[in-house]
């Protein structure tokens, strides 16, 4: 197995495209190394992206935040500005594994690992995040919900590397939240996850919203019907009920070692309601 530490995104893309065998990006390694340990993958090339300057930092731009692909979840939690603007996104990243994992794992890795239960992804979808992709020839930007195509598969082409994830500029009176259900209080994979991002008008009526669910379908889901259920409301009981109904209706889960269809479907509605309430309170500035 070869190990390379390129210093530019393009160099990384070229290395991966040029590999005849199996090539993998190594960011935090918290998923990849587990798969290597279990011999589920046996890479011929690892491209460690942690020495690429463009991937190493969180930047606050006029257009929003740009989070480099090699930035760890812990570093996101330490960025007060990011945390203040996108508390739900940061919380979702900070739910991935233990402190040990936090210090290594990245949201780009969480996305590219393409698990239906990835914690960061519903929050990123709710936030309307975009993914900056660098290929050997060209760059492109893609909506985060377009990246995962199925369990373990993405729309990235061979040689394409995620350089950063960007979060849009935040209007005033906005809030987001992510909640997940796990049997244990820590160190678990989401049985259900729900992310909500919303913006209020001056009368505290929800002006716009995005709702996303995790672990209830082959991919994390953007649920426009759930957003519609709460837009134009102050999140009253009726709106919350419609929100839960829309979420449950969007679920297409499986029975597996982590949960049942019945449980996931029901709890998806419960968590979406709770996340919406939390996002609403945050948008109100409470």
């Amino acid at each position: 197995m070869k190990y390379q530490t390129p210093s530019t995104s393009k160099e990384a893309a070229v290395l991966i495209q040029g590999e005849r065998g199996q090539a993998f990006v190594l960011a935090g390694g918290t998923d990849l190394m587990v798969r290597m340990k279990g011999r589920f993958v046996e890479p011929d090339l690892l491209v460690d992206i942690k020495q690429i300057p463009a991937m190493q930092s969180i930047k606050k731009l006029a257009t929003g935040f740009r989070i480099g692909a090699a930035v760890s979840a812990a570093e996101m939690g330490e960025n007060t500005s990011l945390k203040k603007t996108w508390p739900g996104v940061v919380e979702s990243a900070n739910l991935i594994g233990s402190d040990q994992i936090q210090n290594r794992c990245t949201i780009a890795g969480n996305l590219c690992n393409a698990s239906p239960a990835a914690d960061a992804v519903p929050a990123l979808i709710a936030a309307g995040a975009k993914v900056n992709v660098v290929g050997p020839q060209r760059r492109r930007t893609v909506a985060v919900e377009k990246v995962i195509t199925g369990p373990g598969t993405t729309s990235l082409r061979k040689g394409e590397v995620v350089e950063a994830i960007t979060l849009p500029k935040r209007p005033p009176k906005s809030g987001d939240a992510y909640l997940r259900f796990t049997p244990r209080s820590e160190m678990d994979i989401a049985v259900v996850g729900a992310g909500v991002s919303l913006t209020l008008d001056s009368n505290l009526v929800i002006k716009s919203a995005r709702v996303a669910l995790g672990a209830v379908a082959p991919t994390p889901l953007l649920v426009p019907a759930a957003a519609q259920a709460i837009v134009g409301t102050k999140l009253n009981k009726a709106a919350l009920n419609l929100l839960a109904q829309a979420c449950c209706a969007a679920c297409n889960p499986i029975d597996d070692k982590r949960g049942t269809i019945e449980f996931r479907t029901e709890v998806a509605g419960v968590l979406a309601q709770r996340a919406a309430k939390m996002a609403y309170q945050r948008a109100r500035g409470k």
């Binding site: 244990r184 209080s185 820590e186 160190m187 678990d188 994979i189 597996d256 070692k257 982590r258």
Partner: peptide, 16 residues
Amino acid sequence: LQNPGFLDYRIPVCSD
């Protein structure tokens, strides 16, 4: 066996 690991064989962690 579907859960031969400490991720899905869930023994209590400190915060539990």
